[in-house]
């Protein structure tokens, strides 16, 4: 077993045991915090597939979390309650939106891709705010939550905790396999040297588009679960600042590292809670912290987390 697997085994064992170790479900606050971090980690792992493995910096990724969340919420409002059916709806809608925007956005690359994903993300955000029937700007509180075969086990407490944890584990495993499979290899080749990959005989844009859609699907699932956890949906999920936060998590955790994305997500959620608890204006510290991190901690904080020698630059 290599080091990332050992670290992952440790992380997941800890997450699995936490509800038993602590009298956690008495402390709904802590459970909520961990679920929040896990949801962030799912979205971050999907973004890392684009940035870390594919070298495609998207600044509109949170939009897919929003699309997934709204697809689920609208499904719920229309009387569809089974979580598996909602999952299918979420995947279909997110996939379609990603296919269309991705096809257009991937006509470019590099910093142009960044600007265009930002613009499409914003377009999706505004579209969500204009859904007057579903709360518009203010969002929508959901009175009915999803069920699993009619059971409410996936609605809160331990059930929801383990559903989110199980999803995180599955996403981790899927992206792990994918990154080592033929597909991931082509994606890395296209990141390293797209011209060479093309001259090796790969239709580079197709692989990049496939990665873009897969990443969006995973983000959409995180949106679905976010609805289930928060019992509320709003366009705030899809703002470009959320996309920026996701990039922070990915870079903080170390590129092309799924463990890093999880640790980064927990770090951000904890920092926000801790800083926020003694200073309401915690962003006055968080902002400069990011600047300093870029300026002085060259490898990012990830160097503290990632096993030595596994970290690779995206460019």
């Amino acid at each position: 077993m290599d080091r990332p697997l050992i670290l992952a085994a440790f992380i997941f064992a800890l997450l699995l045991a936490l509800p038993l170790l602590l009298p956690l479900f008495g402390a709904a606050y802590l459970t909520g915090l961990i679920i929040k971090a896990m949801l962030l980690a799912i979205a971050a792992i999907s973004l890392d597939l684009l940035i870390g493995h594919g070298g495609m910096v998207s600044l509109g990724h949170a939009a897919f979390v929003g699309v997934g969340a709204y697809a689920a919420a609208i499904g719920l409002e229309s009387g569809i309650e089974d979580i598996l059916v909602l999952l299918l709806i979420t995947l279909a809608v997110t996939g379609l939106v990603a296919l269309v925007t991705g096809t257009l956005a991937l006509r470019t690359s590099g910093v142009y891709l960044l600007m265009i994903t930002l613009a499409f993300g914003q377009m999706i955000y505004f579209t969500l705010t204009s859904l007057a029937a579903y709360g518009g700007d203010d969002g929508l509180t959901l009175w009915n939550l999803a069920t699993l075969f009619g059971s409410d086990v996936v609605q809160n407490g331990a059930g929801l905790y383990y559903v989110v944890l199980g999803t995180l584990l599955m996403v981790w495993w899927f992206v792990h396999r994918l990154s080592r499979a033929r597909f991931g290899r082509v994606l890395r080749a296209a990141r390293d040297n797209p011209q060479r990959a093309e001259v090796m005989g790969f239709a580079v844009k197709r692989y990049q588009l496939a990665a873009y859609v897969i990443a969006a699907l995973i983000a959409g699932v995180s949106g679905l679960l976010t609805v289930q956890y928060a019992e509320f949906v709003s366009p705030a999920l899809a703002t470009w600042q959320r996309s920026g936060d996701l990039i922070v998590v990915v870079v903080l955790g170390g590129l092309a590292s799924r463990n890093g994305a999880i640790l980064g997500a927990f770090f951000i959620v904890i920092v926000e809670e801790v800083l926020g608890s003694f200073l309401h204006e915690w962003r006055l510290i968080y902002g400069p912290l990011l600047v300093l991190m870029v300026l002085f901690a060259k490898g990012g904080l990830s160097d503290l987390f990632a096993p030595r020698g596994t970290r690779r630059s995206a460019h």
Binding site: V57, V111, I247, V251, L284, G287, P288, V291, V294, A314
Partner: peptide
């Protein structure tokens, strides 16, 4: 000045930090 030669990812992160700070300020 210290970011011109860095990757776009670094530039995005640092300028994102500035936005967060100034908006809060």
């Amino acid at each position: 000045r210290h970011l011109y030669t860095r990757t776009h990812l670094d530039q995005v992160l640092a300028t994102f930090g500035i936005i967060i700070f100034l908006n809060e300020l």
